[in-house]
Design a protein around this nucleic acid. Structure first.
Length: 576
RNA sequence: CGGGGCGUAGCGCAGCUUGGUUAGCGCGCCUGCUUUGGGAGCAGGAGGUCGCCAGUUCGAAUCUGGCCGCCCCGACCA
């Protein structure tokens, strides 16, 4: 697909010499400075012609790969009626993120943050038979999520462009196949876009699902984090990463000290207690009270560890932190003083690490009181052990024997997961199978943050002068700077090159402005087009043009007549 | 939602503590001349309800209150 070429003198575009105060991240600052985006409200941006071209190129790559994988594009509304969301329970569950509105009759709507409900509604009205399956339906559309805190420009906007595809299959095997197709297509997309990415084991989150993977770009500015093993390449979302149970030395009974009760007035946090008792958080066991459909559960983890609620939920089903009243009822003490000793009436689950602790601190189930020198089996018993904590930087790799996990910040660009029948069952999206039985459709869901890719590219590929776009998504492939637009013969040469490059399949940005050379060079660096042709004095004197590569700042002189072929070979080289 | 900061010309900022008459600076913008391979020089010029509303005062960008907007940190971890 060829995009139109453009003269800078005609383009709606302005660079900023100074960084706007609001921009904290490099990508944000450079996108603003280069004239790609402008802010309208918190987390809401306009794409200027330059930015829109980058976005369009990303979109086009995604579209091509989705189509190649058998996807069919459609477009759903942005304003969605509340009833659909009430059907799946997400009107309430999605909470504050849903931007709600009312029409003049007082009917309730929301701005679409995602479209499982709408697509499921669409499909349930159209699909009757297994003969109509499988289906892969997608759209590229603006979403709105009223984020707690939008930040970082395009990285976490409230309004953003997203590609979302939904798969509909008659059985699990079909879903596996659709999932695989999408996974492969995603790899091709991120390869083509030119970003280095990692695929990570993930958690389903709000939308719900299993077998989920995220496509991440590693960047310090990313607000997401992952754990990666340098030895075997294993990567997982922090939420998801398993912890290999450490095989600590067995606790020797002879080393056990007598339990002591200590007064710890108003010390509800691990930090308060350990500072007061002059001990380490590693030597304390937190008792966290949860409640769910199956009743109350107390989860025990080491004091310095973070409980992983997703892991807990995998063992005991969906749970939420118990409210203070319930904690008091269960533990007989105010929040902050629960402990395992004497709590045997409650279902208790402990993280594996608790097994190897000796003489540790716990709550005493009595307000303002803790116990020290507590020991497992002597003072309380635990029937269930599980992996309950969040993995951390430096943990041993769960997959290979000698690797260590390293915590890395990253930007989530894509997410694929198997939904199963969560939506089809809630919304009665069913089909009649070959065996005449009516069954719920098996669904999958696959998203890409299109605008986020633009930000991720800028975040990971730039220098102090501006963005360095990967060729595939650069706003233009070639930039021509005519340094002396008032010299007739040079202008004619530049015009000719501009006209010759287009039929050769290249989109060109032609800086024909009557500006000083310094301005043109600075703007070209800011815009970040891969190949830059400079036409100036030396062209007149020697008949040569200068080719500059944005990526490595290299320069070479090329005879005017050879420029088109020289550029073509540079492009095929970089594509290879 | 909690904490912190900010709001003065298109952008970046000073002025506010200690109220005072035409509200400043740099960049950008317009006109002219000179200049032209890495953000030019000189001269002239345009551009402001000092976020909004109310109050205190003879007088408010400046003091007080309310509201709005924006940015940063946090918002599960007993």
């Amino acid at each position: 697909m060829q995009y139109p070429s453009m003269r800078v003198s005609q383009m709606f575009f302005r660079t900023l010499r100074e960084t706007p105060a609001e921009a904290e991240l490099v990508s944000h600052a450079l996108l603003l400075r280069g004239g790609f985006i402008r802010r309208l409200a918190a987390g809401v941006y306009s794409y200027m012609p330059l930015g829109w071209r980058v976005l369009s190129k990303v979109t086009q790559i995604i579209r091509e790969e989705m189509d190649a994988a058998g996807g069919q594009e459609l477009l759903m509304p942005t304003v969605l009626p509340a009833e659909l969301w009430q059907e799946t329970g997400r009107w309430a569950q999605y909470g504050e993120l849903l931007a709600k509105l009312e029409d003049r009759q007082g009917r309730k709507f929301c701005l679409g943050p995602t479209h499982e409900e709408v697509i499921t509604d669409l499909v349930r009205h159209e699909v009757r038979s297994y003969k109509q399956l499988p289906l892969l339906l997608y759209q590229i559309q603006t979403k709105f999520r009223d984020e707690l805190r939008p930040r970082g420009g395009l990285i976490r906007g409230r309004e953003f462009l997203m590609k979302d595809l939904y798969s509909f299959d008659r059985d699990r095997a079909g879903l596996d196949l659709s999932f695989e197709k999408m996974y492969d297509a995603y790899c091709r997309i991120f390869d083509r876009v030119g970003l280095r990415y990692s695929v990570v084991e993930a958690e389903g989150g709000d939308i719900g699902g299993t077998d989920t993977k995220e496509f991440m770009v590693i960047a310090d500015a990313g607000e997401d984090s992952m754990l990666q093993c340098a030895a075997c390449g294993f990567s997982a979302n922090r939420e998801r990463a398993e912890c290999r149970p450490a095989d600590g030395a067995p606790v020797s009974e002879s080393a056990m000290l007598p339990v002591e009760k200590v007064s710890t007035p108003d010390m509800k946090k691990v930090k308060d207690v350990t500072e007061f008792l002059k001990t380490d958080a590693r030597n304390l066991v937190k008792t966290l009270v949860y409640s769910g459909a199956g009743g109350v559960v107390a989860a025990l983890v080491r004091g310095d560890r973070e409980i992983n609620e997703a892991k807990l939920a995998r063992v005991v089903g969906p749970v939420a932190m118990a409210d203070p009243a319930m904690v008091e009822q269960v533990s007989g003490a105010a929040v902050g003083f629960a402990g395992p000793v004497g709590l045997e009436s409650v279902r208790m689950i402990a993280d594996h690490e608790v097994k190897s602790l000796l003489n540790f601190v716990t709550g005493a189930n009595e307000t303002d009181t803790h116990l020290t020198n507590v020991n497992l089996n002597r003072d309380f018993t635990i029937k269930e052990f599980a992996d309950l904590r969040c993995a951390e930087d430096g943990d041993p790799c769960p997959q290979c024997s000698d690797g260590t996990l390293e915590l890395k910040h990253c930007i989530e660009m894509g997410h694929v997961f198997k939904l199963g029948t969560r939506y089809s069952e809630a919304m009665n999206a069913v089909f009649q199978d070959e065996d005449s039985v009516v069954k719920p459709i098996i669904m999958g869901c696959y998203g890409i943050g299109v605008s986020r890719i633009v930000a991720a590219a800028a975040e990971t590929s730039h220098d102090d002068k501006g963005i360095i776009w990967p060729a595939a998504i650069a706003p233009f492939v070639v930039q021509i700077s005519l340094l002396d637009p008032n010299v007739g013969e040079l202008a004619a040469i530049a015009d000719k090159l501009y006209n010759d490059l287009q039929p050769a399949g290249m989109d060109v940005l032609y800086d024909d402005r009557d500006e000083r050379p310094g301005v043109k060079f600075a703007d070209a660096d800011l815009i970040g087009i891969p190949i830059h042709v400079v036409i100036g004095k030396r062209t007149r004197e020697r008949g040569e043009m200068e080719l500059q590569l944005r990526a490595d700042k290299s320069k070479r002189m090329v005879p005017a007549g050879d420029v088109v072929t020289a550029i073509q070979s540079l492009l095929t080289q970089s594509a290879a």
